[in-house]
Design a protein around this nucleic acid. Structure first.
Ligand SMILES: [Mn+2]
Ligand SMILES: [Mn+2]
Ligand SMILES: [Zn+2]
Ligand SMILES: [Zn+2]
Lengths: 134, 134
DNA sequence: CTTGGATTTGATAGTAATTATCCCGATTAT
DNA sequence: ATAATCGGGATAATTACTATCAAATCCAAG
């Protein structure tokens, strides 16, 4: 385990914002929201803090969204529903499945697994529904 | 199904490079390699072509690597071993697992699923092994 | 063959996420 | 107290990707 990080007002603010947050926000969203309450907060600090929290395994960095990295304060194993239209991400429980067998591993040491279901959220299904099936 | 795309020398070159390629290359790598053989090839054309191939479901665009999008000519269901150090991606067979139950779906319409195992490839395990457990 | 419309290419400019730099102030160790 | 380390903020730099658009190419019809 890495050595415990020092607590600072900025880090506390970011952690407070992330705590219980289910939206899987991007660095930009984190900055925008936290900056409202703590206007002294800088963008660089958001990235620095996320980096520190990552190393502590206090957040997951998700690469589900090809456009921007998304952050997840929930670090117990769980899976994700990702909407390919609006890019919303929803947690679902981890649907345990059999891990790859020994010789499939090709010598890899597995640290964690991610299961993502890509699809359309209810809202975007409705949006697409209007105006034909294009 | 989308209407079939027109074949052009550029597209053929890119498809030829991708065919059987197991390295899950980035757009940059595709450009660099194909450009060696076909110097008239432009970067924009690589992106254009990948876009066309995506729509035809002839390549998958993977967002496993937070730094760059990776492309996969293999479009049957299969899972991935991703090395967190060198970012190499290896195919493994799809280890069928039970899909989320009805009420977990929260109204989502699922289009496809991705399973990724993050870990260390044999080479990077060795690299880390030297010089302590840092 | 010629013409006209649609598609594709490739050069380049623009956008936006992330990283690097650098200096200052706060904290900690000696 | 002094020096060393660490964190914060401003901002520059990098880089993956997208948008634009004119020129080239393809295709079908006349
Ligand atoms: Mn989550
Ligand atoms: Mn693959
Ligand atoms: Zn949606
Ligand atoms: Zn590796």
């Amino acid at each position: 385990m890495e050595k415990k990080i020092k607590m600072t007002p900025q880090r506390a603010a970011i952690m407070e914002y992330l705590d219980g947050n289910m939206s899987h926000p991007s660095a930009d969203e984190i900055y925008t929201e936290v900056h409202k309450m703590y206007p002294m907060m800088s963008f660089a600090t958001v990235y620095n803090t996320l980096d520190a929290l990552k190393k502590q395994n206090m957040v997951w960095e998700l690469s589900v969204d090809g456009d921007r990295r998304r952050y997840d304060p929930r670090t117990e194993p769980h899976d994700h529903l990702v909407c390919v239209d609006c890019r919303s991400i929803k947690d679902i429980g981890h649907n345990g499945h059999k891990c790859p067998s020994g010789d499939e591993l090709k010598g890899y040491m597995i640290l964690r697994e991610h299961v993502e279901y890509f699809g359309l959220c209810p809202k975007c299904q409705r949006k697409r529904g209007m105006g034909g099936d294009g």
